[in-house]
C-alpha cells in the first residue's frame, strides 16, 4: 500500500538531489536542471497532499500546473541567460560568474 509518506519521502529525495545539483554543480545548465528537480519535487508534494488530504478539491493540482508553467518560463529565461553569457564569456561555469562582487 503506497501511503502519503512514500510520496513525501520520494519528494524529499528528489528535492535533495535537486538542491545538491543547484548548489554544487559547476555547469549553469546543470544548476538549472537542479532547480527544475526541486520544483518538481514540490509538484509531487502538492499533488500528493491534494490526493490524500482533500480529494474533493483540485487546488493542489492546479497549483502544480501553475508551477510547471512558471518553471517552463523560468527555464526559458535561464537558458537564454546562460546562452548569452556563454556567447560573451565562453563559459558556463558558475564559479566564473562572480561579477556581483566588485
Amino acid at each position: 500500500m503506497i501511503t502519503l509518506n512514500h510520496y513525501l519521502i520520494l519528494a524529499a529525495i528528489l528535492f535533495c538531489i535537486g538542491f545538491y545539483g543547484a548548489i554544487a554543480k559547476k555547469n549553469a545548465v546543470a544548476v538549472l536542471m537542479g532547480i527544475e528537480l526541486m520544483l518538481n519535487s514540490v509538484n509531487i508534494n502538492l499533488v500528493a497532499f491534494n490526493r490524500f488530504l482533500s480529494p474533493g478539491e483540485m487546488t493542489g493540482q492546479i497549483f502544480a500546473i501553475m508551477v510547471i508553467v512558471v518553471a517552463a518560463a523560468e527555464v526559458a529565461v535561464g537558458l537564454a541567460l546562460v546562452l548569452n553569457i556563454y556567447r560573451q564569456r565562453l563559459t558556463t561555469d558558475v564559479n566564473d560568474l562572480d561579477w556581483l562582487k566588485w
Binding site: 543547484a22 548548489i23 561579477w99 556581483l100
Partner: peptide, 14 residues
Amino acid sequence: IQTGNMQNYALVIF
C-alpha cells in the same frame, strides 16, 4: 562572505 557566487548565496538562503 560576499563571494559573488550565486550558489553560495543560495546555500546560505536555504
